[in-house]
Amino acid sequence: MDYRPGILKVLHAVAGEEINPEPDESLFSSGLLDSFTLPDFVSGLEQEFSITVPDSDLSARKFDTVEKVETYLEDKVS
């Protein structure tokens, strides 16, 4: 399954702009996310992919790049 379109959809909604970062580009370093938009990004992913992110997965590192989010979703959705 290609998760990238859904990830970018959520990212654009949260960041408020349609910037498409490189898959390995830090969403924090690039300024697309910060500490207070990250919770919205995670909530958006939960809704978009009908998953629940447990407290044990609430680490910024897991959601730092599009690639990492894809890896997480592959593990979570399958």
């Binding site: 924090f28 910060d34 500490s35 919770p39 044990s56 609430l58 680490s59 910024a60 590192r61």
Partner: peptide, 23 residues
Amino acid sequence: SAAEILRIEDRHLHMDGGSVILQ
């Protein structure tokens, strides 16, 4: 399990702000 994201060690505060806010 998330102790490392917010700790004072060697007299210095270490904080992973994004993870702290998420939690």
